[in-house]
Design a protein around this nucleic acid. Sequence first.
RNA 1: UCCUGCAUAGCUCAGCGGUAGAGCGGGUGGCUGUUAACCACUAGGUCGUAGGUUCGAAUCCUACUGCAGGAGCCA
Length: 455
Amino acid sequence: MRTLIHQVLQREEPLDEVQVAGWVRTRRDSKTFSFLELNDGSCMQNIQIIADSDLDSYGDVEKLSTGASAEITGKLVPSQGKNQKWELLATEVRLLGACPDDYPLQKKGHSREFLRSIAHLRPRTNLFSAVFRVRSRLAYAVHQFFQERGFIYVHTPIITGSDCEGAGEMFRVTTLDPHAMKPQKDENDFFGTPTYLTVSGQLEGETFACALSNIYTFGPTFRAENSNTSRHASEFWMIEPEMAFCDLQADMQLAEDMVQYLIKDTLTHCEADLKFFNQFVDKGLLERLQHVIDNEFKRLPYTEAVEALINSKQKFEYPVEYGLNLQSEHERYLTEVHFKTPVTVCDYPKEIKPFYMRRNDDDKTVAAMDLLVPGIGELVGGSQREERIDVLEGNMAQHDLSMEDYGWYHDLRKYGSVPHAGFGLGFERLIMFVTGVSNIRDVIAFPRTPGSAGF
RNA sequence: UCCUGCAUAGCUCAGCGGUAGAGCGGGUGGCUGUUAACCACUAGGUCGUAGGUUCGAAUCCUACUGCAGGAGCCA
């Protein structure tokens, strides 16, 4: 019976017999024995194995090159060496899969670009195994956060007929012949109507919030935008809570609580991995994360954000002026330089926000909010939704949205309308923030970006 | 989509008009309770592709392709 290396290395007492299995990181031969470093991905550390040349199975040891897989049984004893507490004195070594010398992963560092080209092997590196352990823990913590607060997990559709206006270009889902010379009618398509991969589950999520009160979605979303940046991917995961009987203040509070909760959870449960990131990826990471959980987030209206930017006398490439969207450089200045802490900006001019956001009493702004964090920029975008049927109808007319397409959304206001609010949080951006990894392609197992969908 | 930069050995890079280099990795041998082990030897390249300038191009010019960083869009 095999034991995970993670569990073996946590032992307080020696063991007469234990079996581990994994992939060889390196082998160092001595005259009468070999040192093996074995890793099984259960934790950052390798287990050091001493394989004596007297072993019946020493023939297998000599075939254990970097990358080979093996199953090793032995005695766990305190190590004579300096760099590890325990080592395994092998009694039996069994080669499972040999690894030819064209194995692309070396003991030395590789560039991220090269590792992306071997995305099927990169989880075997320290960096990527750590990223994906943290990703797994964060996903678990997301569910824990919402479940502890009585939120219901709703699975909104991946294939959708609605286009969640304003959220970006969509991928068409169709069974029509792409090589057909003649135009084909949508009625002949699989669903009898044009369908797409979802860009957001928000509108569907609202229908469930207006029945189950507090809900959240957590799943893949798709954008066909031709975005070529380190923060955008064509397929990414999004967390979208939606709360009935809720205003923007409570919405912002939930977003801020959630970010702090998730960071605390990761600091507690992924300590070794975060230390690794702090040492090799981003030297200021632990300090920054600690700062985020120890301090309240700065909260201010868009109008004050614009004033702060103008008063800063900072030179920006793009102009700062009431009524214009905040650019990346503005957002990053606010969170990285001006306040040096996560910042939630709210109450944006209605002209620059989508139709479903709730009009404020000033008739100029809407109850929208963006949560900005250092190094990433926008992590969360959310709003209180327009629950007044007449105002929503006006907005729909202004945006040329038909009752045919949005009738069901309009119905939520027609039948027992309630104030409600929610937000979307990009899961990969959260992982980037927590790990310090600066490219979204390195926190997704097999990233999809324009012109690239390998594996 | 725009702007900028890069493309040389399996990997990371140097060379920047005059006979293609290093480190790591691989192979062989040695040494050692080692730990990104160490020492010696060795194999390995149409210098991204296609044109052009030149006596001569990895090196200069043009186009294309790919990649990266930034911008826009957003999460």
